[in-house]
Design a protein around this nucleic acid. Sequence first.
DNA 1: AATACGGGGAC
DNA 2: GTCCCAGTATT
Length: 359
Amino acid sequence: MRLVDLLFPAEKFVERLLVWYGQSGRDLPWRNTRDPYRIWLSEIMLQQTTVAAVSNYYQRFLEHFPSVESLAAAPMTAVIDLWAGLGYYTRARNLHSAAKIVVDSYSGDFPADVEALQALPGIGRSTAGAILALAFDQQAPILDANVRRVLCRIGALQQPPRSTDAEKQLWHWSEQLTPLSKVHDYTQAIMDLGAMVCVPRQPLCEECPVLELCQAHDLGLEQQLPLKQVKKKLPNRHESALLINVAGRYLARRRMAEGFLGGLWEFPSVAFAEDDNSAEKAKFLLADFGLEGQLELLGSVRHTYSHFHLESSVYHVSVDCHGLVTEGENHWFSPEKLSNLALHGAHKKVLAKIYSKEK
DNA sequence: AATACGGGGAC
DNA sequence: GTCCCAGTATT
């Protein structure tokens, strides 16, 4: 493929964008700092996550871990507990291991170098660029969802934006536009433009400072671009989840640290095929704990993940002893403790079935 | 090149 | 319901 250059001078784009940013930019919790630790934390939290979802997590996380040293010294479970609800939990694991590397190999100072940053777990090209631009004011391009959309429209890119060719073209344009000076402001500005004006649906073109440079607008394609990705149907999965009650307390366990929903808490559950009997599976699971009792189906909850739907059949059972449950990752919790537990999203819905039962 | 990886808000 | 979000790592 051949890379296309933008049809206008980058300086013209940057100049207009920065004027607009000075008047209309957002005030966000991670702005007004050049602390690489804070910039890095915000960038990781914001990967594939909305600003609204991140704000409170960011503040709370910093209260517990105000420095990279404090984060590196923490147990992984404490980091996961603070991340619970944000999603994409590999980010939390990578955050923790990257913190240790920064402390051990860089004396706690983030390297101002794109290769060194990208070598840290959880930091790809765009996040490395963001840290360089925002913390060190170094000329480095980013390509997040905001910039991707702005560039798809500015350059009227007529390809699916996540295709390999499109990626190359968009990075080229991002490099072309990223200025040598005022990179910090420029980077915040182009993200704000994407978030506030050049929004996914019904872009506010009349408010756009670079409307005259926009190829999509010239062609009347601002509503069509970026092109939509072809979506595939998500498969369904099934499980039975158990609310095992002993003297008003319920059994929960922490998932293994690695893998899907790693380190989060959940109720005992077992997956089954679509045509299996959920009650039968629940009974066997209960027997695995050395327990038996009358299972009551409280209903089912549905939860959608990034790559499948889950339907969880929720069973309640009251038993009079703790069975084989003595140690390990299993614990008995009162309902009050459960509500503060780092349960994953599907089992927060499962937990809600307790309260609907108790009323 | 395709897939795994969460959860919530807007419509 | 669908679409989208300050993407990266693995296969």
